[in-house]
């Protein structure tokens, strides 16, 4: 019995290391913590918070798509009475009930990276302070144009999609198609989801290679999937003749580009997003006006 109490007390001590600060804090709620994109975002936010001397709480679900867990986190942050919530929605529509709850509690919500379904939000009577992010459609279009240019306007292309029904992936995809549609010589031979994940990117592209060994380029709607494809291509010994373009320009992707294993990636600059989120949250809390859309510039990263 004593031992049990002791062990619980020890547990309490562990938790106690992260004491609940009483100053009004800003919360950054991300999709997950185990994706380099979000780690960069966290880094940018932390730098800004330190500079502004704002307490910052960073939370995320264990899995990227766990909307219910993200909702619980937001509910709990409302209980904790944070001053503002910067949120990367795990689902464009699923997150709306949570935004409504924050609205009711009078806590401003700043959306990052992934847009909320604006019609649904308006219908539900919710509001967000701003959207800070890049235009994913534009990014997809830039990727498409790069592939057209590298293939000289003729070739076979495969796409690794994100999870269907998610705004981020859908916009990138639409942007990519918009570019490709203008080049009649480019044919899309396969377009399948790899659920944003690296290992699935590997497997799915390996399967595509089986059915379309003549594929010349692949566009991954994020770098994780694109990097999976890079590995699959290397394993097939085809590194020299298949172009890979990813999205997000995470560190691993930048290294792969520098090493010539990957053609290019679209840089969204998550660190900048994190910084802008905290700075604008601070401005909003001081009662200043902030624009409804704060664009974060996109660039093509290549060798």
């Amino acid at each position: 019995m004593k031992k049990a109490i002791l062990s619980l007390a020890l547990l309490g001590l562990c938790i106690g290391c992260s004491q609940d600060k009483s100053a009004p804090a800003v919360a950054l709620v991300m999709k997950t913590l185990n994706n380099p994109f979000f780690m960069d975002m966290q880094l940018g936010a932390e730098e800004a918070a330190q500079r502004l001397q704002l307490p910052l709480i960073v939370q995320a679900a264990e899995r990227e798509l766990d909307v219910e867990k993200q909702m619980q986190i937001i509910e709990n942050l409302i209980q904790r009475k944070v001053a503002a919530i910067c949120l990367t929605p795990a689902g464009s529509r699923e997150v709306i009930p949570a935004i409504l709850k924050a609205n009711r509690a009078g806590i401003p919500v700043l959306i990052l990276d992934t847009r909320v379904d604006s019609t649904a939000l308006a219908e539900a009577g919710g509001k967000v302070a701003t959207f800070i992010g890049s235009d994913n459609f534009d990014g997809g279009r830039i990727a498409g144009e790069r592939i057209i240019e590298k293939l000289g306007g003729i070739g076979r292309v495969a796409i690794l999609e994100g999870i269907p029904g998610h705004e981020t992936g859908d916009s990138r995809l639409r942007g990519f198609h918009a570019a490709i549609d203008k080049a009649p010589g480019i044919r899309i031979v396969a377009s399948q989801t790899a659920n944003w994940e690296r290992d699935q990117g590997y497997n799915v592209f390996q399967n595509i290679l089986q059915s379309h060994p003549d594929v010349q380029a692949v566009f991954g709607c994020n770098d994780m999937m694109a990097l999976g494809a890079v590995e699959a291509i290397a394993a097939a010994g085809r590194s020299a003749d298949i172009l890979v373009i990813g999205f997000d320009a995470i560190t691993d992707a930048r290294e792969a580009i520098a090493a010539g294993r990957m053609e290019a990636s679209i840089a969204q600059n998550p660190r900048e997003m994190g910084r802008l989120a905290i700075e604008n949250a601070a401005r909003f809390m001081r009662g200043e006006q902030i624009p409804a859309y704060i664009p974060v510039p996109i660039e093509l990263v290549r060798k």
């Binding site: 938790i15 992260s18 004491q19 995320a60 209980q79």
Partner: peptide
């Protein structure tokens, strides 16, 4: 809930 309130990482 408690760990969220305390800002403990996932």
């Amino acid at each position: 809930n408690g760990l969220n309130l305390l800002g403990v990482s996932s």
